[in-house]
C-alpha cells in the first residue's frame, strides 16, 4: 500500500521499506501550548525524517 492519504495525517506507505520498520510514516509535526491551553502548530508541514538523508 503506497502513498495513501491517512486520516488527519500525511501520505503513508506500508511496505516495511524504511529499515524494515513496520511504521507507515516518518513524518512529525511540532506544536506549542498557548496561554489558553490550545495547541498551535510550529511548522507549516510535516518534517519527513525518511527524506532527511
Amino acid at each position: 500500500m503506497k502513498n495513501l492519504d491517512s486520516f488527519l495525517g500525511p501520505q503513508i506507505t506500508c511496505d516495511h521499506a524504511w529499515f524494515g520498520n513496520s511504521a507507515c510514516s516518518t513524518a512529525v509535526l511540532f506544536y506549542r501550548f498557548q496561554p489558553n491551553g490550545a495547541l498551535k502548530a510550529q511548522v507549516p508541514d510535516f518534517i519527513e525524517v525518511a527524506k532527511l538523508g
Binding site: 495525517g9 511540532f30 525524517v49 532527511l52
Partner: peptide, 23 residues
Amino acid sequence: MNHKNAFFFGAAAVAYGTAALKY
C-alpha cells in the same frame, strides 16, 4: 518494531527523535 505482519499508520518511534533534532 519490524514485524512483517504489523503496520502502524503513525510515525515510526525512532523518527520522533530525529525530527525533533531537525526542528
